[in-house]
Deep mutational scan, measured.
Amino acid sequence: NQASVVANQLIPINTALTLVAMRSEVVTPVGIPAEDIPRLVSMQVNRAVPLGTTLMPDMVKGYA
Rank of each mutant, 00 (worst) to 15 (best):
T15Q: 10
K61W: 11
R39N: 10
V41F: 00
A34H: 06
A64S: 14
Q9H: 13
Q44L: 14
L51K: 14
L19F: 13
L51T: 15
P57Y: 09
D36Q: 13
T28S: 12
A34K: 04
I13F: 10
I13N: 14
S24E: 11
M56Y: 06
N8P: 02
M22L: 13
E25L: 09
V41D: 04
P50G: 08
Q2L: 13
G52W: 02
V41H: 00
L40T: 00
N8F: 01
I37H: 02
A7N: 02
A34D: 06
V60S: 04
R39A: 08
L51N: 12
K61I: 14
P50K: 09
P29I: 05
A34T: 05
V30M: 15
S42E: 08
L10H: 15
L51V: 14
V20A: 15
P50W: 06
P57Q: 07
E25M: 10
N1H: 12
I13V: 15
R23T: 07
V26Q: 09
N1S: 15
P50V: 07
V27T: 13
K61C: 15
T18W: 03
P12H: 12
I32A: 01
Q44D: 05
T28E: 15
N8W: 04
T53V: 12
V45S: 03
E35H: 12
Q44W: 14
L17D: 04
V20L: 14
M22I: 08
Q9W: 09
V45I: 05
S24C: 07
T18F: 06
P57C: 07
N8A: 15
V41P: 02
A34R: 03
A3I: 06
V5Y: 00
P29W: 02
V5S: 01
A64D: 13
Q2E: 13
N14H: 13
N8R: 08
S42F: 08
S42K: 12
I32N: 01
A16G: 08
N1R: 06
A3R: 09
S4F: 00
A48Y: 10
I13W: 08
A7C: 05
M56T: 12
V26N: 09
I13Y: 13
G31A: 04
G52E: 03
P38I: 10
V60I: 14
A21W: 05
P38Y: 11
V45L: 06
A48N: 15
V26R: 06
S4P: 01
Y63T: 04
I13M: 12
P12I: 05
P29L: 05
P12E: 11
Y63F: 09
V45N: 02
P50M: 13
P57V: 06
R39E: 07
M56C: 06
P12W: 05
Q2R: 08
V45T: 09
A34C: 08
A16S: 12
A21T: 08
S4G: 03
A64C: 15
L17F: 00
M56S: 06
P33I: 06
M56I: 06
T54H: 01
G62K: 07
A64P: 12
V5A: 09
A7L: 05
I13R: 12
V45G: 04
A3N: 09
A7F: 00
R39M: 14
G31L: 02
S42C: 15
M56W: 04
N14P: 00
M43R: 10
P29T: 03
S42A: 12
G62I: 03
V30C: 14
A3L: 11
A3Q: 09
N14V: 04
I32W: 01
K61P: 10
V41S: 03
N8V: 07
D58R: 08
N46L: 14
G52H: 08
A48T: 15
L17E: 05
V41M: 06
T15W: 11
T28C: 11
L51W: 10
N14S: 06
G31H: 01
T18L: 06
I37A: 05
E35M: 10
L17P: 05
T53N: 08
R23E: 05
R47V: 14
V5C: 06
M56N: 02
P29H: 04
N1A: 15
E35I: 12
I32P: 01
A64Q: 14
T18K: 09
V27H: 02
V60H: 04
V45A: 04
I13K: 13
V26S: 08
T15G: 09
A48V: 14
I32C: 05
P33M: 06
L10S: 14
A3G: 09
V20E: 15
T54K: 00
P33K: 07
N46F: 00
P12R: 09
Q44Y: 15
N8T: 12
N46S: 12
A16L: 12
M59V: 05
V41I: 11
S24V: 12
V60F: 01
V60M: 04
A64E: 12
S4T: 04
R47L: 07
A64T: 15
L17H: 03
T28R: 06
E35A: 13
L19G: 05
R39T: 10
P57D: 05
Q2A: 12
V26P: 05
A7H: 00
P50I: 07
E35F: 12
V26C: 12
M59A: 07
T54F: 00
A7Q: 02
N46I: 13
Q2Y: 15
P38N: 14
V45W: 00
M43S: 04
A3M: 12
P50F: 09
R39P: 02
R39L: 14
S42M: 11
A16Y: 15
M56P: 03
P29R: 03
L17V: 01
V6T: 04
P12F: 06
G52R: 00
P33V: 06
G52N: 14
V5H: 00
S4K: 01
M43G: 03
S42L: 09
R39H: 11
T15H: 13
M43E: 04
I13Q: 12
V45D: 04
I37D: 03
N8I: 06
Y63C: 05
M59D: 10
V5D: 01
V20Y: 13
V60E: 04
N8C: 09
T54D: 03
L51P: 15
R47W: 06
Q44C: 11
S4Y: 01
G31T: 03
N46D: 07
D36T: 07
P12N: 08
L55T: 01
D36I: 07
M22Q: 02
S4E: 02
V20K: 15
P38E: 10
P50R: 10
V60W: 00
G52F: 03
P33G: 04
D36R: 08
A21E: 05
G62Y: 08
M56Q: 12
A34Q: 03
V5N: 00
A3P: 11
P33F: 10
N1D: 15
M59Y: 12
T54C: 05
L40W: 01
D36N: 13
V6N: 03
V30G: 08
N46Q: 09
I11S: 01
P12M: 08
V5Q: 01
T18E: 08
D58T: 11
P50Q: 10
